[in-house]
Design a protein around this nucleic acid. Sequence first.
DNA 1: TTGTAGGCGTTATCAG
DNA 2: CTGATAACGCCTACAA
Lengths: 341, 341
Amino acid sequence: MNIYDVADKAGVSIATVSRVINGNQNVSEKTKEKVLSIMKELGYTPNVFARGLGLNTMNTVGIMCTDSSDPFLANAVYYIEQELRKNGYDSFLCCTGYELKNKQNYLNLLLSKRIDAVILIGSSYLESNVKDNSYIMEAAKEVPVMLINGYLNKPNIYCTLCDDQQATYNATSLLLKEGRKNILYLYTTKSYSGIQKMKGYKEAILTKQSTIDEVYIQSCPNNIEKVKDRLLKLSEDGLVFDGIVTSEDLLAVGSLKYAKTKGISVPEELSIIGYNNSILASCCEPELTSVDNHVETLSLTTVGTLMRVLSGNTVPNRTVISTDLIIRNTTNFSKDIRSLL
Amino acid sequence: MNIYDVADKAGVSIATVSRVINGNQNVSEKTKEKVLSIMKELGYTPNVFARGLGLNTMNTVGIMCTDSSDPFLANAVYYIEQELRKNGYDSFLCCTGYELKNKQNYLNLLLSKRIDAVILIGSSYLESNVKDNSYIMEAAKEVPVMLINGYLNKPNIYCTLCDDQQATYNATSLLLKEGRKNILYLYTTKSYSGIQKMKGYKEAILTKQSTIDEVYIQSCPNNIEKVKDRLLKLSEDGLVFDGIVTSEDLLAVGSLKYAKTKGISVPEELSIIGYNNSILASCCEPELTSVDNHVETLSLTTVGTLMRVLSGNTVPNRTVISTDLIIRNTTNFSKDIRSLL
DNA sequence: TTGTAGGCGTTATCAG
DNA sequence: CTGATAACGCCTACAA
């Protein structure tokens, strides 16, 4: 079943059928209807390969994320996929994991599939070693590369990110205003946004004291138990803290488990702020105050930008979205403090 | 850049290059090496469209899920994607949402992309109205259809499911053994596995009493607040219950929030069992006892089965995987009860 | 072992 | 407005 069958049955040439398929104007209303009805009757669908061969595109965008079971990434994947489809694009998904080698392989694989663009979700695609990002720049020579929560100022790379630095700055500042003296910062990776977040934390701390005590900055695997154990250890070692700012909700949940284990009351004795405002934030007890980085907006903006790029517009290389702090019950903000938001 | 460029530069014909690409034996070691080095030098990758045109396959599997931001589905997507890739297959992801019309459209879309198979994750693809499933049967005429947590005994449809009925039967029975008198069952949808789970609950209840009181079976949106409100309402209306079995972890979390609001202690006064053993189960407080339906095994088994189907083996139409009950702190099982597991 | 040539199903460019 | 025909890049008999 191909375009010839349709043409035969409709008594026209394949060229005419092709025109109908592609909505070309130069077809009389009569033949158009005729052809359409035959196509329906035969249940004909054009062969995407043949089409792709001619056009060298399949209206497909590659999506890469490290781990689609991470709630934040999963949400982004969802919104992006939906939005792409609304715009007539399909999506290839790749869950690459965290190893550089795999990321590179997957990206090459996507390129070899003649995708029209690629979207990298999450700042973990930006290695701290600048050279290691060259594979992204290479890819950008072939197709537009969209970065979510990462920043790389290079041709044909478009970045949508949220203002992570401002977000942790605000979060930390509010804890300070709340009267917290020793605020711990927990993070998982030194990815691009990881670094931004840390900057915000440091900046806020430096408004109150002249130096940063590095022991208050702790990197930790993104795992509830691991976080709990780490905090127990730190506490045993004599570290005193009454506030925790985290780079992920899960780290905050782990912190809650620590507090529970030690019988520390939250937020009376310890304030905790999560990040991402994921479903986890409203599952735990007490529910997490958390930074909402607007996954949905981030995702839709990215796709919107991509569409403009694909239709040949010149588009700014960087779009920054502001965050909100969603106040729940792991912080103890007064009316005055809340009014600052 | 195409096969001709490579052939020219290597001083051979395109046929020879093609043979090298496809690992055909009939090429002398020398020419093979020559061609390979030229391909590397030029950075040549075969055009998938041209290839697909001839072979009419792209080694691509379509994955459909209703909502990739659901933790269970997200996990499944992750494992499936990884496993497919290990087997040399790419994946198209579609997040279809819950409306039948959309599901149908997406499935047709995938078929028109000449995918080699399609995997439907989650029992929400099986409508209770049997006729509404005919689109799946239609699809199965073209490519193998893999169903995860759904069952349809039709040609070219292969189902991998976990023993949901047994799981809720066990969960409910254990609560009864624990001494619970009035056990509520909360569920979200009457999908295939939804029905199985409910059967298990009823079966267990009927071992203790002669009839089911339907008011103890409540359907509820998959939303923490909604569940809480529903339970508060039921309680106000005078319904008495001391155990809750749910079809989703999120419903169990909502139940916890209800208990918290009413000052009911869990598990002393109320036992709660979740389903899926998702990350939510260990986030909340107390942590959820939950049915582990082994997403990973489910996913890997599905892909394994698919690979056997694609290589032409005859494969059983149905594979059932057993569940485990992961005991945490929302139940109060004695040593004796635990030993039953 | 290697090369030639036809075919896969479209789209696009010309003539008419 | 319509039709013939040449790409598109690859695979694979069939020949050599």
